[in-house]
Design a protein around this nucleic acid. Structure first.
Length: 737
DNA sequence: CTCCTTCAGGGGTAT
DNA sequence: ACCCCTGAAGGAGAG
């Protein structure tokens, strides 16, 4: 935000570039060949130019992402096959309407942000938790103090009673769990003296967090989801809880001194905890489809696949089970993970040459040997003859976080043949050729296409603009339509941040931090960390740890650089986005890159609407690009810190992105969203700026539409603004505002 | 009940 | 980018 224009000089001075780029207000008129890109060559194409303020070319209509509420023109049924299928817009383009005119888009580089409206103290009500059980088995006094330490879940004191009652139960659980673990773990194998003692206090800490997360999450789901056979809801729930727990443990570990020799594995710890608590599903191994897991689903840790029953071993690549045939039992393979541990051949998207296991290929301290036909190798061999389906998971480098991996569930394959090869070290290696079954949704092939688009090896079909921000963002955002002939949304000015019309002063002075090189976890002197309850709200990957009533980011007067870990929502886009034409909801937003749960996506840019403008808006009422934090928002039911009551924010913020906005204005509503918003406060000494930042609720595979819940209006205006919802979710409310 | 195996993943270190 | 180290779950095998 404070990267002022001046500091941005040099070759990367985009503001200057923008001003001389005439194309920004020109959009080509088709027809054009599928791969035609107006900016890729010097060839001239017919252009039409629209004045930003109108009048628009004939046939042009301002863009509305959703149904107009006007009753005279009822929208068609969701699956109607109406020509163009886009009657959801007031100026929709049926046969009588010619193709819409060109839509110019201008953009600006963020100037220093003007100051914001008044800031009330954080009006957090905290979660209103159900008191669902009251076993009172020995509350340890120590637990109470730990409780107080555990910031964000207990922001208001009146919850403590409830906390303690539910906590007591979980302490018992914790004790049981750790006993189980202790008896289970090999006691004498590694003589790690003293470490038990070291671990005991964090252990309590973690148990507390588990219980808090479970409390905050939907308990009905917890009690009723089926462990034997999952469904989409239980799988989603488990993954959500797992990731929340993992992020929280990571946050706590980050703040601690590193103990040499001890590897911190929040992924394993949180996985073990959930395993022991039975928060898992599809426990029994099975051949073929795993209920609740869909082709294309992504995972960021092996543990996640264990918990939902997609692939049981937490390290091994081949999962297999015994299958009874008459009297005898023989092993058959059920799933494999291909992620570069061996020399697999992954050239073709639908064919995989997979290496067998064993032979000590991966271990430096042991002699490399021939692989044997046993365990996984035997199972794969049997599966070849039985012809059973084998699930395939492909592991890839994570683009956003290059040290990590993404696992893509690529659906069912069958083994076609097997053979033995001499490996690099001269020893025998088994090879299995797997071929993907036809008729499944695309998964891995989509990833390959995206990679090719990025490398310029092939071009994305239907691209209208390679970058609709004209360089205003740090990453390009394509404008794509591969469903019909519409050439773009209505005119607006691209601007990557929020515009405040008048400054707002804080009632209490706020102190900026003094962290020159960036705020670091565990620094108890950092005032910005203090404001967040003692933790940086983001972990090292820039992922939000949990839902809070308010995040305090570093502000203009903090000396830390823009890449400070407490400036995530200011540092620009992290994933490659595209604005695309949906089948039935106008334009939408999606990502080329996978997005992990909690990752920052973008902020809601636009113009802050102050009170007097609100009045105008009432009469105008046709602004479909409103973000209104004062609406009622149903709790997502899964995020800790998320109240069962309406969420509240520090002060009523309403943003209009009708004329000025960023990618967020294209995000459609859904009653089962995959994105949520979060108020973020950036303060300087006397002023504060409230922003709205969007984060992923769960892992989002590439090319999945990004949606959030627009909230509910309860005022008299509600009926006027009501629009029919097409989110298609089972929990769809039928309309939105 | 232990041992054994295993296409992880973090942290440290040398480029 | 390597190198090293600890790791968790479930199969395999011993008692």
């Amino acid at each position: 935000m404070e990267q002022s224009l001046g500091s941005d000089s040099g070759p990367a001075d985009k503001s200057r570039v923008l001003n001389v780029k005439p194309l920004r207000c020109l959009v080509p008129i088709f027809p054009s060949p599928p791969n035609f890109s107006p900016f890729s060559s010097g060839q001239s194409a017919p252009f039409v130019c629209a004045n930003p303020s109108g009048p628009f070319p004939s046939g042009f209509a301002p863009f509305y992402p959703f149904f107009s509420p006007t009753d005279s023109q009822r929208p068609p049924e969701q699956n109607s096959q109406t020509p163009f299928g886009v009657h959801n817009q007031p100026g929709s383009f049926g046969f009588n309407n010619p193709i819409p005119g060109a839509v110019p888009i201008t953009s600006f580089r963020t100037p220093p942000p003007p100051p914001p409206p008044g800031v009330a103290p954080n009006g957090d009500t905290g979660p209103s938790r159900q008191n669902y059980r009251t076993h009172t088995t020995g509350i340890q006094s120590q637990s109470q103090s730990e409780e107080a330490d555990d910031d964000e879940y207990s922001e208001t004191p009146n919850q403590n009673a409830q906390y303690l009652s539910s906590f007591s139960m979980h302490v018992t659980d914790a004790e049981r769990t750790s006993k189980a673990q202790r008896s289970k773990s090999k006691p004498q194998k590694r003589g790690r003296k003293g470490q038990e003692v070291n671990f005991s206090s964090p252990e309590v800490d973690v148990e507390l967090i588990v219980s808090n997360i479970l409390n905050s999450c939907n308990l009905m789901a917890f009690d009723t989801f089926r462990r034997a056979d999952g469904d989409k809801e239980s799988v989603g729930y488990i993954l959500m809880v797992y990731d929340l727990l993992r992020r929280r443990i990571t946050q706590i570990e980050d703040g601690k001194e590193a103990t040499p020799g001890v590897t911190r594995r929040p992924d394993l710890r949180s996985g073990t905890i959930l395993m022991n608590k039975g928060i898992r599903t599809n426990i029994k191994k099975r051949i073929g489809v795993v209920p609740g897991v869909e082709v294309g689903d992504i995972f960021f840790f092996r543990m996640e696949m264990c918990l939902v029953g997609l692939h049981a071993p937490c390290m091994a690549g081949i999962d297999y089970m015994g299958l009874k045939i008459s009297q005898e039992e023989e092993p058959v393979a059920v799933s494999i993970v291909s992620s570069g541990g061996y020399e697999d051949n992954v050239e073709d998207g639908d064919v995989l040459i997979y290496s067998g296991q064993g032979g000590n290929i991966y271990r430096k301290d042991k002699q490399i040997s021939d692989q044997k036909l046993e365990r996984g190798n035997l199972a794969l061999e049997k599966s070849l003859h039985r012809g059973n389906e084998v699930r395939v998971v492909r592991g890839l480098r994570d683009v956003v976080n290059p040290t990590g991996k993404v696992y893509v569930y690529d659906g069912l394959y069958k083994i076609q043949e097997s053979w033995v090869e001499k490996g690099k070290a001269g020893c025998n290696v088994f090879k299995y050729k797997l071929v993907r079954l036809p008729g499944q949704p695309e998964a891995f092939t989509t990833w390959k296409s995206i990679q090719q688009w990025k490398e310029g090896l092939s071009s994305r079909a239907g691209v209208i603009l390679p970058d609709l921000t004209s360089g205003a963002e740090n990453l390009p955002v394509s404008l794509v339509n591969d469903v019909d002939d519409e050439k773009g949304p209505a005119y607006f000015t691209y601007f990557p941040s929020l515009r405040y019309s008048k400054p707002v002063n804080l009632t209490e002075p706020s102190f900026s931090c003094n962290c020159q090189g960036g705020c670091l976890p565990g620094n108890s002197n950092c005032s910005c960390i203090k404001k967040n309850g003692g933790y940086i709200p983001y972990n090292v990957a820039g992922v939000l740890v949990n839902n809070k009533s308010l995040i305090h980011e570093c502000g203009p007067s903090c000396p830390c650089p823009i890449n400070c870990r407490n400036r995530i929502s200011q540092a620009g886009l992290k994933v490659r986005l595209e604005v695309f034409k949906t089948k039935d909801k106008g334009w939408g937003l999606r990502s080329w890159d996978p997005i992990r749960a909690g990752a920052f996506i973008c902020e809601y840019a636009g113009e802050v609407i102050n009170d007097c403008k609100m009045e105008e808006l009432g009469s105008e009422s046709e602004d479909d690009y409103i973000f209104d934090a004062t609406r009622t928002y149903q709790p997502l039911g899964v995020l800790p810190g998320d109240s069962n009551k309406a969420r509240q924010i520090p002060f009523p913020l309403i943003i209009s992105a009708k004329n000025v906005g960023n990618v967020a204005r294209f995000m459609n509503h859904s009653c089962s969203p995959n994105v949520f918003w979060q108020p973020v406060l950036r303060e300087s000494n006397s002023e504060s700026f409230l922003h709205i930042a969007f984060f992923a609720i769960r892992h989002i595979p590439p090319m999945t539409e990004l949606t959030y819940d627009y909230g509910i209006i309860q005022s008299g205006k509600a009926d006027e603004r009501k629009k029919r919802c097409l989110c298609g979710s089972l929990k769809c409310r039928g309309h939105f505002y």
